[in-house]
Amino acid sequence: MNMASPATAASPTPLVRARDLCVSFATPRATVNAVNGVNLDLAQGESLCILGESGSGKSVTLRALMRLNPPKRTVVTGELNVANQDVMQMTQAQLSQYRGPVVSMIFQEPLSALDPVFTIGHQIAEAIVRHEGISRKAARARALSLLELVQIPSAARRLGAYPHELSGGLRQRAMIAMALSCNPRLLLADEPTTALDATVQIQILLLLRKLQRELGMGVIFVTHDIGVASEVADRVAVMYGGRVVEEAPVEILIRSPRHPYTSGLLGATVHAGTRGTRLTTIPGAPPDLAELPAGCAFAPRCTRAEPGCHKAVPPLLEVTAGHHVRCPVVCPARIQAPINV
């Protein structure tokens, strides 16, 4: 597995290259700036986790990679290249060619993300028919082998099942089979296990890890759960207020987080061994995305904030190889030069 980081991306062209990606939504009351300048690189076969709480912009970022945000109300700017294609310049017709064979997505709640009145088999086969132009019968045969690939027992019978007839775990497996149906090079997963039971969650995570390794896809997970990241990610990017505030290989991020928000979040996460201790908490509430502060979005809640933090958005700087932090207090600019300009 390639442990490439933005600064040292060794492979000639990364699978995903996003620069200064911004997404905003027009609402009747205000403009919501959900994503404010995200840079992402992902190598082929690499697995990245975007970690954040609600309103951090993590899901919006993921959808922007597919240009899947509601087209009428959304403004997306910046550069986005996936598999050597300029996604920002694509027409609707080109986008529909891009979605499926190049990039596909797994959603959080398979029950609502699958059409209730079509069978699982139909929903998998229709994507194959659409993109490969093969017969419905051949597509159905492929759908069957996909269900077997995601380890659905008695797969042939499940082809004719409707989503509500399957258990939560099987539905998510069917969703994964659907996402894999056109052999995508990039798989996006939006909280794929949040709606599942604990014993099912680990099965799905292990399945995704196995499939990624076998099929050599790049995978971007979005999660609020550092535990999920610890099981599947090579690298983790922590988002806050629509920006990446810290990015590092997963073991470094878990062992030695640098950004005050990341350490706060990890400290607040209940895990074995916190019993009897008082959980550290982050005071205050997440920022209003319609009125982001001029400086660091976390500064109003940060116990270590300095006057400078409130004035300008600090740059994302590399502290050690592959470990980037957007905080002038823990990582002063004079030590390291900014990257990715």
Partner: peptide, 15 residues
């Protein structure tokens, strides 16, 4: 079934 919280000791088999 709880995630390991330690990338160097990941689960290999679902319980």
């Amino acid at each position: 079934s709880r995630p390991s919280m330690d990338p160097s000791r990941r689960r290999t088999e679902p319980p």
